[in-house]
Write a protein that binds this DNA or RNA. Structure first.
Lengths: 216, 216
DNA sequence: GCAACCCAGTCAAGAAATTGACTTGGTTGC
DNA sequence: GCAACCAAGTCAATTTCTTGACTGGGTTGC
């Protein structure tokens, strides 16, 4: 009851959405590097300083939505059912996401999603800034692990590996779909890949860190 | 080159238009007195003080457009062809406007125009504020006459009469159309009325003020 | 007659936008 | 190498907007 209505807030939200939507539209149409922030600002009918008040960099116009998912892995681990290890929880979640064709798995052939991913993976400056978001994702996941008495170094190592696996699986699925396959066609291989990757991770983490990471 | 484009100006203009349009829509739908300025502000998505920054009063939300026509009579007199008197110029203009079904003549049966005029003539506070705009119209016309060496009092008297004739003719035409006639049906009578009213005015002014006001 | 209320219109304080000029870094032409 | 240029990002000054509270007139219920 303290957040929603309020002319000020709703207009800010609208401006933000307008900026991100306009930017994405222009980027998809002409390419990230061929569009200047001045173009985006003009198309969204705001000034350049205003744009930079909403988004700290040009890249964030595209990547901002990633912020919403930064704590996803950590949350999955924190909220997992009793008796399931962190690796198992992330593995289960990924399998479910695959079945639902969740875009984060890369197994989604909706044209808009594909275009967006192609933009991401074909733009150097975007790729490099994704690292920033990834780092935060790792950090949050590591914190969740440390909360379960995993020693700091091990927690960070495990978090790094887990996040990397999720990303790499997603990217591999995208590659196949970008090469022309449908999500349906890729699905079986995607499941096999996921099981193998998470399986390897479970083995490795079990051997190194003990049974807590991935019980039964 | 110093006025137009500019984010600030264009947004102000848009807000102003949005306010006037939203207000008119609500007023036509529910009646002037049944809509509060808070309603208008909310529907136009601005705050109440902002609304009052754009329009000095609730009535001006409707009447603001009259400001554009305030100098019309004066301009017609100033820009008239040589050899034609002020009364003749206004008379000619009114006849032309009748033929074109210009809304200012009241001889216009477009539903939107009718609804607007009905709103005007059926709302006391609007009618009373129209006087304000009329006064300014008279003042400007009087100034135009004074510029032609008509003595001040005569100029103001003539201006008052001329403006009154224009308004009363318009109102009479509206009454007939509001009673159910079409503009086509009313047209002949409207021309007769106009000729008679301007004719009377020309006679009267000629007798009182001399031939300058209405030569030949 | 009185209390409660609604509405037009105002005010002061603070958030946020525009503006234009600026810095910095990279490219291109020569 | 150098000059010109372009784009990302920043800054200070001014303007506009929102907010919430306020005045004052007018109505309604009691």
């Amino acid at each position: 009851m303290e957040n929603t209505t309020g002319l000020r807030e709703s207009k800010k939200l609208r401006t933000r959405r307008q900026l991100a939507a306009t930017a994405l539209e222009l980027f998809l149409e002409r390419g990230f590097d061929a569009v200047s922030v001045a173009d985006v600002a003009a198309a969204a009918e705001v000034s350049k300083p205003t744009l930079f008040r909403y988004f700290p960099s040009k890249e964030d116009l595209v990547l901002d939505r990633f912020a919403d998912h930064q704590d996803e892995a950590a949350r999955i681990v924190r909220d997992r059912p009793a008796g399931l290890g962190p690796v198992g929880a992330l593995h289960d979640h990924f399998r479910t996401a695959l079945a639902e064709r969740d875009p984060i798995t890369g197994l989604c052939d909706h044209p808009d999603v594909l275009a967006f991913q192609r933009l991401l993976y074909s733009t150097a400056s975007l790729e490099s800034r994704i690292a920033h978001y990834t780092a935060r994702e790792v950090e949050l996941l590591a914190a969740a692990l440390e909360a379960e008495e995993v020693e700091p170094l091990s927690a960070r190592l495990a978090a790094t590996h887990l996040v990397a696996v999720r990303h790499e699986l997603g990217r591999e699925n995208w590659r196949r779909i970008d090469a022309g396959s449908t999500a349906e066609e890729v699905y079986p291989a995607a499941v096999v890949d996921a099981d193998r990757a998470f399986g390897m991770l479970a083995d490795g983490l079990d051997r190194t860190l003990g049974p807590l990471i991935s019980p039964a």
